[in-house]
Amino acid sequence: MGSSAKKKKEKKKDFQKTKLKVGKARPKNTNATDTSFASKSIVFKQQNLTESARDSATLAAHNLSLLGSKNETQRKDALIFFTSLCADHEETMAVSPTVIAGKAMPLVLDGSAQVRTQLLKLLRALSTRGDLGAVVDQLLLYARAGMAHLSSEIRLSSLDVLNWMLEGENALAVVSSAGGWIKTLRTFQNLLSWHGEVLTGNAGGKWSTSKSTSNLGSSKLLVHQLTTLSRFLHVGLVRPSLQEEAEAAAQRAAALFPLWHTDAHLLPTKSNPFGYLNLFGAVRDVESEVYEDAEQRAEIFVELGVYAACVRGAKEARKEAGEVGRAAALVEKALKLVDGG
């Protein structure tokens, strides 16, 4: 019960309608709560300050993921990291060489030259730390893809990779992997355009077959291809001398005298020992079949007509002077192994 004028006025004010005006903001309710707040953003200059505190496993995992990075320097740095890791013999590897090789393999087809050379270095280093037999067939696929690449630089570097594979202890695994023999030979055939009489794309074969246009200008690639081919043929066709083998077997049998067929009961020494059975894969054709020993390889080599084409091609190439001729002579020499020489 207000009695004074002021109180009456106040009371009256409560029941008055607030006037809304056009173009003005609506007056706030008396019971409105202010929910506004202020905020401020903080910027870190470095996201991770403790580089040293990382353990080797996370570092390796991080670098492993960097192998697939979009940035080429990052990829190269990751490769360098792993190379140095391999070189450091005291440290145990957190990741197995096979995993690293598997992740790094696609870089055979990388666009940057630095990355590719670094990759070769890494592969060399990795082979010192462990057996890479498990990834040979995949690596061979990449090498083959690289050899047929549009860019000649990538062709060169992938030939280097193939060379390295043929040098190492897994050389035999290369030629005896699924499709490793015939398909690679076919790739070489395409590269050198040694089709013999099989491919008569030109009408009637009246015209001389044209040289691959990409070989024009530089014979460096051609020489490289020829030398790699000769090495490849050599690895694939050379037969272990029977006498030595027999002697070694006799010695071994003598050492382990009471046991018979010891090797059959031991753990297999190479990876995927029953791969040639192809239990789980798709059905293989002639080209992608596994050819275990040199005998078989020589046989199929002749049978598919690749041999004839190679002989013919090498003969042609030998007529060229200089390095090409010399490399072709090497190929011819390797081709003679077919007869079991």
């Binding site: 696929l141 990449y142 083959r144 893809a145 047929a148 398909k183």
Partner: peptide
């Protein structure tokens, strides 16, 4: 004329497909 180039690319396709 470009049969060779095509064969190379086809071979590359084949190996990539296998991979």
């Amino acid at each position: 004329s470009y049969e060779n180039e095509f064969l190379n690319q086809h071979a590359q396709y084949a190996s990539l497909l296998e991979l």
